[in-house]
Design a protein around this nucleic acid. Sequence first.
DNA 1: AAGAAAAGGTTAAACGATTAACCTTAAAGA
DNA 2: TCTTTAAGGTTAATCGTTTAACCTTTTCTT
Lengths: 335, 335
Amino acid sequence: MKKEVTTMKDVAKEANVSIATVSHVINNTKNISKATRMKVMSVIEKYNYKPNYSAKTLRQQSTKTAALVISSYPDSFVTEMIFAIEERAKEMGYNLLLVNTKENNEYEEKTINLLYSNLVDGILLSPTSGDIQYLHKYTMEKFPIVMINRYEDSIKNIPRVTGDNFQLGYDATTHLVKHGHKNIGFIFTYPNVSTTADRIRGYQQALKQANLPFNEELIIQGFAHADGGADAARELLEKETKVTALFIQNDLMTIGAIDAIKKLKKSIPDDIAIIGFGEFSASHIIEPPITNVVLPPETIGKIAFDTLLNKINNPDYMSHIELPHSMTIRKSCGC
Amino acid sequence: MKKEVTTMKDVAKEANVSIATVSHVINNTKNISKATRMKVMSVIEKYNYKPNYSAKTLRQQSTKTAALVISSYPDSFVTEMIFAIEERAKEMGYNLLLVNTKENNEYEEKTINLLYSNLVDGILLSPTSGDIQYLHKYTMEKFPIVMINRYEDSIKNIPRVTGDNFQLGYDATTHLVKHGHKNIGFIFTYPNVSTTADRIRGYQQALKQANLPFNEELIIQGFAHADGGADAARELLEKETKVTALFIQNDLMTIGAIDAIKKLKKSIPDDIAIIGFGEFSASHIIEPPITNVVLPPETIGKIAFDTLLNKINNPDYMSHIELPHSMTIRKSCGC
DNA sequence: AAGAAAAGGTTAAACGATTAACCTTAAAGA
DNA sequence: TCTTTAAGGTTAATCGTTTAACCTTTTCTT
């Protein structure tokens, strides 16, 4: 599939100048007389000529493209983050490649490997919950990678931007504790992931501080969609845990859980109080309106991209940024 | 920012073979003795060598990258479509570049222009509602573009895959008519877009068939988010239109509209019946559960990508594919 | 008016692969 | 045994830019 496309050579020939001159006109990299410039420009216009990106890249060793590798099915938090990153990339003159590894560790490694082939200048990575030790290879070579949302402590030299998930878990739990709850269920999506671990630490800390016992049975995993939330909620309610409150880490799951609880003829928040994670379009419309603890997806996205840019421009750049959460109080928590 | 990266040359030197041999080993494009192959492989392994993508691309004139250019803020329909496309691309050995033009026509043109620079092999375009006549330039050059969701009739030679939006509008409206509604509001997001136009034609056809008058006041635009839906619904209810049913073209707007209607102390579906567009995670949980007319985002995405592949491999390829919708009946329509 | 500096161009060497064409040597056919 | 064919490699051209180095010619400086 050979495309017959105008090249710089063609333009140069038609305009009766050298290739170098054409390049200089395009990039404004040398003084060019108005006459020549106009001549060249008109030829460019005439043939709708565009410089070949690969050739440019090959010569300049910079693709002006970044990749965003996410792992989970995108809920509204992730979706908003994605588009914030896309926008920021655009602003900074970068293109964005999107890859979803769907929590497939093996595929993730293959992807990073592929991207590493000078396809992109750097990678924004929200890693899978699997083993990501293979990343060491890249940090050694100082290939620009920035972790977003999730991190892995054993891998040094990778900057990251995440939410302050410990505090988030702590605050959400404390809020429920203040409403008098003693048996608080915690429904998460992926284990072995920093987000989950940090929030659970916060949860435990809050209980400890309130002199409440920590019951492992109250912490369970669910699939990251509505049905998964419903299943998890049912499981928790049917166990002998006397659970009276739920802290759910995913918007779709929250929706599912609410549905399931209603179907069990329990009232929210009277029988079961709920705090969800992440603001989404239906948060305030669902009955009852959902209290959420939220992280700012746009801010995280933009800062992450800027961090990546720093890392690209300075291979030794390092930072760990933790963004604070906020809480949107509505009825589902009992307030 | 020069990266010191191993090249094929380095590998060749270290393995004591020619560059060509290394290339042949990597691409399996010639008989190579087992001994040499192993020698080369081990050097590749040792240096974690990856072929330079730009060089490869430059030589082969194919980037194995496609772009998805969407225009609107992504609701769940679009989000699911995006990831279906990303997955399909992956399957077919392509990378996916994502661009959101946010309904900015000027930016859209700039984007297409940029992408055209051999950055991608082809573009999947869901165009803005603005003037897209500039596309003629590209169809002339047979640059592979496929329209997705939206199309523009005046631009020939561009394949497209969309929903059968006429039928969708017709069926949704007819359903409401059968419930006895005579004044059916139609809330859309973007005017001058084929999706909207086709659905309105369907709406009109349904009214005509039922001998109902067409009242232009009942068709209004709203911003594509929850507040926009709320505003539009209020506007319609406050007008002297005696509206008793609403057909809303966007999930967020539907959520907003429901909220607004409830706040006006009207009951759904008794006072106002509602049919939304697109299935989303809260569809069945909202009170009342929402009746939706839905298009299959994954199918549209996958078929669109395959169509683009066809177009890439055969510049004369042409097709107009219309996917059928389905309807998920719940309570909001009065059933 | 002489010398220096600026303006406006050009030449040619990269950048890092792929691949047709060529060259040996070994194996197979007759 | 002689000729053909296959196997295993290499050389060098090519893809389309960028950019340092070089060369004229014009314009300043003093």
